[in-house]
């Protein structure tokens, strides 16, 4: 059924810390590895070693430059399905292959009933759905639905593969519908935000903004900035060095 559930018992999702993400692609690689053998397997690649390689990935890491000049900074930005609460990607699906689970809010595509019409990918503002050219069906993040409830794997692995892989701990997983959960508290504490709220898809995933930059340009005023140039004393020896410097740098 592509009609959306009125409400979901849980709102499982990810919280991504843009302050600590280093853009290493570990999450994307781990995602690809797990999911090419998981719920929506395979995630096909076309010409993986050819001149124009392309493949289906469920997680993509952009890097952006923010600001101009010496105060600019690089922010790495992982982008995957946000498991929205009211996503048009589900309601536009003509077959019922796309659906949102009432129990935990995960948005899934059933690879056995999808006809590959691609309309859902047009309806997603976040580019989270990728069509599998080889299999003719749509793929998207499953929030590792085949890990998080999987009793055949050790308990510490029952989290999405991307969260497990992240070496800097920039990815957090949990129930964002429960205000007492660790992820909800993290969002509250760090001012986590949703992407493109004006689209009204009500994403569940949250992004934690980078913390204020701390370096010589922005250091707080109680630590005095080192002087750019030593203050001249005007001594004769100094004038001599200046003169020598001038001669030598001709």
């Amino acid at each position: 059924m592509t009609s959306l559930p009125q409400s979901t018992d849980k709102k499982l999702g990810l919280v991504i810390d843009l302050d600590t993400c280093v853009g290493c692609q570990a999450c994307a690689t781990s995602c690809k590895e797990w999911n090419t053998g998981g719920y929506s397997a395979p995630l096909s690649d076309i010409q993986p070693y050819g001149v124009d390689p392309q493949g289906t990935w469920l997680n993509r890491i952009h890097s952006y430059e923010i600001g101009e000049g010496s105060t600019s900074r690089t922010v790495h930005f992982p982008r995957s399905c946000l498991h929205c609460e009211t996503p048009a990607c589900v309601t536009v699906c003509p077959t019922g292959a796309s659906y949102k689970r009432a129990e935990d809010g995960i948005v899934l595509v059933n690879p056995d009933t999808c006809i590959g019409c691609k309309l859902c990918s047009w309806a997603c503002p976040y580019g989270a759905r990728e069509y599998d050219y080889a299999e003719g069906v749509m793929r998207k993040c499953t929030l590792c639905v085949d890990r998080i409830y999987n009793e055949h794997i050790p308990e510490e692995d029952r989290i999405p593969a991307c969260v497990r892989a992240c070496p800097t701990g920039a990815r957090h997983y949990g129930d964002l519908g429960d205000s007492e959960s660790k992820v909800s508290k993290l969002v509250a504490e760090r001012g986590g935000y949703a992407l493109l709220p004006e689209m009204d898809y009500k994403p569940v995933n949250r992004y934690l903004p980078p913390r204020p930059r701390r370096d010589s340009n922005t250091a707080s005023s109680d630590t005095p900035r080192p002087a750019e140039k030593p203050v001249s004393t005007g001594a004769a020896i100094e004038r001599l060095f200046k003169f020598a410097d001038k001669i030598l740098s001709r």
């Binding site: 843009l18 853009g23 994307a28 124009d52 390689p53 392309q54 493949g55 289906t56 990935w57 993509r60 890491i61 952009h62 890097s63 952006y64 430059e65 923010i66 600001g67 101009e68 105060t71 600019s72 900074r73 690089t74 922010v75 930005f77 982008r79 691609k118 990918s121 047009w122 503002p125 580019g127 990728e130 069509y131 050219y133 935000y193 949703a194 992407l195 493109l196 992004y207 903004p209 980078p210």
Partner: peptide, 26 residues
């Protein structure tokens, strides 16, 4: 779209993939 506009002008530095993926093609 990234929510990063509050820190200054945002421009893409590195694309996630070196050749066009489905999203770019479509």
């Amino acid at each position: 779209a990234t929510g990063l506009g509050q820190f200054g002008k945002v421009r893409m530095l590195i694309s996630p993939h070196s050749t066009a993926n489905y999203v770019m093609r479509e």
